[in-house]
Computed example of a mutant assay.
Amino acid sequence: MMPPVIVFGRQQRGFTGMQVMLLLLAAVVLTAVVSFVVIRTYIFPKPLTPVKLNANETRVLDDKLQQLGWQVTPRTPPKNAESAELTPEPYREDPSKRQVTFSEKEVNAMIGRSPDFAKRVAIDFSNSLASAKVLVPIPADFPVMAGEILRVNAGLDIHLDAQRRPVVALVGVSLMGVPIPNAWLGNMKNVNLVSEFGDGGFWTTFADGVEDIQIRDGELYIKLRP
């Protein structure tokens, strides 16, 4: 018979029953917290908070919209408004009026003026990228998650090409945080919508009237052609 082999070293110890129970409890709590965050953020998100401007910010935004040709209904009509509108004056063009910059807050405030989009759409501006967060209600007769709210995120690349023509291209779309494959989007990712759908339609008219457009960090800059 071979003599017994004695191995010297640190004694191996396993987890005790109490440690195993604590680890299982921690795993259950962590899973519940993560599930709650995912459900509240992506599957059942809360309505977005509409952006509101103060009186001075509202006046500045209305001036910018009128500069681009939008008719803005004044909240409080000024005194003698009728006589002021009928005062004869010669026509003149101010080149500086063709340049308008909208802040991210102003754009979201414009969206907030619409009851249909006030709590469902939010816009973010970063360099050459406009991002949108949209809460889409699911129809009541839909077979899955009927009547619930679905969170969708999308990004648009907006800049000028080498010929100084506006480029508006879809960067991507995410559904509940999951990026949608390009094939499911009709292979429209990174396609210039201006050139793709620009045969005399909206995009052509838009491009013809814009001399410069830039998405900067927190703002949208537009310069119109003469």
Rank of each mutant, 00 (worst) to 15 (best):
M1T: 05
M1L: 10
V5H: 04
F8H: 10
F8T: 07
G9Y: 04
G14L: 04
M18C: 08
Q19E: 15
Q19D: 03
V20P: 00
L23C: 10
L25R: 10
V29W: 02
L30C: 11
L30A: 15
L30M: 11
V34T: 11
S35W: 03
V37K: 06
V38I: 12
I39P: 02
R40L: 11
T41L: 09
I43L: 14
P45H: 05
V51D: 10
L53D: 07
E57H: 05
D62P: 00
K64D: 01
Q66G: 12
L68T: 02
V72D: 05
P77A: 05
P77S: 07
P77T: 04
P78M: 10
P78I: 11
P78G: 14
E85Q: 15
E85F: 13
P90D: 11
Y91G: 10
R92E: 14
E93W: 05
S96N: 11
V100F: 00
F102W: 04
E106W: 04
V107W: 02
N108P: 03
N108M: 03
M110L: 14
P115W: 01
V121G: 05
V121E: 00
I123H: 05
K133A: 13
I138L: 14
D141E: 15
F142E: 12
F142S: 15
P143W: 01
P143Q: 01
A146L: 12
L150G: 11
R151T: 09
R151K: 13
V152M: 13
G155Q: 14
G155P: 03
L156H: 01
I158W: 01
I158P: 06
L160Y: 01
D161S: 06
D161Q: 03
R164H: 13
R165L: 13
V167E: 10
V168E: 02
V168K: 01
V171C: 09
V171Y: 03
V178H: 09
N182A: 12
G186P: 05
G186H: 00
G186Q: 02
N187Q: 08
K189C: 08
N190Q: 11
N190K: 06
N192S: 08
S195L: 06
D199P: 01
G201F: 01
F202N: 00
F202Q: 04
T204D: 15
T204E: 15
T204V: 03
T204G: 13
G209C: 01
V210N: 02
V210I: 15
V210G: 01
D217F: 02
L220K: 09
L220G: 08
Y221P: 07
K223E: 11
P226F: 08
